[in-house]
Design a binder for these strands. Sequence first.
DNA 1: CGCGGTCTTCAGCTAACCCTCAGGAAGGCG
DNA 2: CGCCTTCCTGAGGGTTAGCTGAAGACCGCG
Lengths: 216, 216
Amino acid sequence: MVLVEDEEPVRQAVERALRREGITVTGFADYPGPDLILAAAPDLAVLDVLLPSGDGFELARELRAARDLPIVFLTARDTVEDRLDGFELGADDYLVKPFALEELLARVRAVLRRTGRLGTAIEAGDVVVDEQAGLASRAGSPLELTPTELRLLAYLVRQRGLVLSKHQLLTQVWGYDAYDPNVAEVHISALRRKLEAHGPRVLHTVRGLGYRRDPL
Amino acid sequence: MVLVEDEEPVRQAVERALRREGITVTGFADYPGPDLILAAAPDLAVLDVLLPSGDGFELARELRAARDLPIVFLTARDTVEDRLDGFELGADDYLVKPFALEELLARVRAVLRRTGRLGTAIEAGDVVVDEQAGLASRAGSPLELTPTELRLLAYLVRQRGLVLSKHQLLTQVWGYDAYDPNVAEVHISALRRKLEAHGPRVLHTVRGLGYRRDPL
DNA sequence: CGCGGTCTTCAGCTAACCCTCAGGAAGGCG
DNA sequence: CGCCTTCCTGAGGGTTAGCTGAAGACCGCG
């Protein structure tokens, strides 16, 4: 998890509390730019809105453009308009200072649970993926996946029954801007071969749109 | 979506606002028991905590036991302990009254987005089309449509009961300026064949003018 | 430096899709 | 009823999206 908060005591308290929960935290005291944040490969970003040299909203915009990262805003600005601005940017939660440490924890846990990143294993139907542990299985049988296949499968499982375009897969799973759809096709193909050794097709192609995992 | 809220004016305001957003709402004025709620097959439950004959927390516990339903609490109890109790039960969000309608909307949207259930589907009669997901169904049975058929159907469903000229269809669905009415005819024909496999005709031809979908 | 594993690129193939065409059915009108 | 227009629909062919086997590039490791 990434935490951007300029007030030293607040940041330290939050960091400590989250670490006690077993959540890995990378703290920043100021707007570090999106690259530094993404380098930490976080599950979630908690952003202060008012930073010495920048704006948490702007940072959120940049993060969202690069990757679909859950975001919780943390700020003293408490008018309804401020909050709406936050949600407009795709915030997952918005907490007003002063806040109870416990409440922040609870909200962070709620978001992580929802995004399926708390207990590391996520499942859909008879497919189980644990990205952290690097394990995946179907109907009980373990799957021998390469790293990219694992990330791809984890992403597909996390997104319920939505259609994911190849472009989306490339940006979210690979971090590319480049756009060679065949890369996605090749990996989907490999993934299918391994998945379908233990059951029927679960990765359906939607011509012209992308791929869809069988909804539950 | 299900909304349980005993204060009549609040409930009506919220219902109206959500409906305006295109979200289907089933409202209850009192603790209806989990079965009644689940019968509505909701994507999300917004629960008041203090109800005339019961406790929203208890209801949430029962709902959670039955199904993994996202839950947003809505309450006048605003101590941190109350909120922590809510999150403890697996709440996805917790909003303190009095609240701004807009903020509730934003938070509901945020949860739905996160859970991937922000409905993009539109319906007319027994026909449901989700252009984003590339899915369409009639009377529960899925329809196997080609991309153009899907776009065409989505357009027809969106225009409630109006007469659409072929020219209009071609420009709106195809983006053509060209005007070969037979193109539209061919696709309407294919669409009819697939639709009428599961029910009576809903796409009527209005000779000389165009086509009309059966109003609701 | 060579080796195994993995990712990307390439190219050929298949199947789906869309448009065109043409013959026939249906509707409108004198 | 006869004629004309509009619409329906099956079939053919050109085009393209997607699949997949195989070859090349890259990387870490002994």
